[in-house]
Each structure stands twice: as C-alpha cells, then as structure tokens.
C-alpha cells in the first residue's frame, strides 16, 4: 500500500515551448531504461531477494514512480498547447495520429513499452547487477537529454533526476555487498 503526496518530488518548470524535447523525454517515460521500466523492475524483484535488501528495492521502486510522474509532467507541459503542425515539426505526427496529445508509454522513437525491457532472474547477484546497470543507463540517458536540451529550467530538474540515479546506483552497489556478506551464516572453526 502507498500513501500519495500530491506534489512532485522536485519542481518541474519548463521555460520554452519545445515539443521536440517532449519526444526526447519519452525515452525516460516508456523506454527500456526509463522510469517505468525501473519502477516495475525493482517492484517485482523485491519478492525474491534476500530480506536485507527488500526494503531498498521497495523504496527505490517507489521513488522511480515519483520520477515517472515528473517526466510525465515535463512531457505534458511541453506538448499541452502544441498544434498538430507543431507536433509534426517535432517529429510527433505519428504520436498525434494515435494518441492526440495524450501521454503514452513509448520511447523517443515511438516504440511502445514492453515487459521484455526488464528482467527477474531470481539470482540476487544477477538481479542487483542488472539494477546497477539500469541506473547507469538511466544516468547516461539523462546526460544525453541534457546535451540535447537548451531549456535551463528543464535541465535543472533533469540534473536532479540524474543525481538520483547516481545515489540509487550507489545503494544497489552496497546491496551487492550486503548480499555477498556471509555474516548471517554460522561459522564453525
């Protein structure tokens, strides 16, 4: 069960009308290394991982949903008053004919989200290593979006999200150490 706080984890301010940026941001919305994939991946893996790190997966999955909400807000703001012509110029004509300006879980190239983006191997090390890789890929994606963006206010929010990927990666790396640690085993010398 969750409690919902009706505010974003970090403010989202968009200073320029730029639907092209919305297209790029969809990579983090419904892309392979996006926030939806991250949230679903951790939420699902938490059932079959040593108890000491379940809480970490739970907390990070929850935070990823709040990041998903931030990305959604960005995409919404960047497209909400865009005309069909403007969306076409932004490369979003295909999105428009299918969804109007509704948000949808697809990546920057319009490929719809699929569960095959995520994995659950059941092996704690394999799963945590995948999680670390996912955080680093999401960090890199934020970098490439910042490189493509000229919107200082949007970049400010994206930098926050990138920093969170760094912290999550750190915590997953520590989770690997916890899982590797054999202090719970009874040692007989």
């Amino acid at each position: 069960m969750w409690t919902y706080e009706k505010k974003l984890q970090y403010p989202v301010k968009v200073s320029t009308c730029n639907p092209t940026l919305a297209k790029y941001l969809m990579e983090q919305y419904g892309g392979a290394d996006g926030e939806l994939a991250a949230a679903l991946r951790y939420m699902n893996q938490r059932y079959t991982i040593p108890e000491k790190v379940i809480g970490l997966l739970n907390d990070i999955a929850t935070e990823e949903f709040s990041h998903l909400e931030m990305i959604a807000t960005m995409i919404y703001k960047l497209t909400k008053d865009a005309t069909p012509d403007q969306l076409r110029e932004a490369g979003l004509a295909e999105h428009y004919v299918s969804h109007d300006s509704a948000l949808f879980y697809s990546n920057a190239a319009g490929v719809p989200f699929t569960a095959s983006y995520i994995q659950a191997k059941g092996d704690p090390i394999a799963d945590l290593y995948e999680d670390i890789a996912a955080e680093e890929k999401a960090r890199a994606t934020y970098q490439w979006i910042i490189d493509m963006s000229d919107d200082p206010d949007l970049n400010d929010s994206l930098r926050f999200l990138r920093e969170r990927e760094i912290v999550h990666s750190q915590r997953f790396r520590e989770a690997v150490e916890i899982v590797k640690d054999d202090r719970s085993q009874q040692k007989i010398f």
Binding site: Y10, Y142, Q143, I146, D147, M148, S149, D150, R159, F160, L161, R162, E163, R164, I166, V167, Q170
Partner: peptide, 28 residues
C-alpha cells in the same frame, strides 16, 4: 539536499553538456 538530489556531498555531481564549451550546441 532537496535541491541537489543527495544528502551527501560526496555524491554531488553536477552535469553540463561537455561538447558545448567553446563550441556550438549540438541542438538548436
């Protein structure tokens, strides 16, 4: 910490487009 995205100074890592310095932005 709320602004930076981390409580710990050691993890703070500001990112800027590295290709922009002295050059043209890659996206207009």
């Amino acid at each position: 910490a709320l602004r930076k995205g981390t409580l710990w100074k050691v993890f703070a890592d500001y990112y800027e487009n590295p290709y922009r310095k002295g050059g043209k932005p890659r996206h207009g």
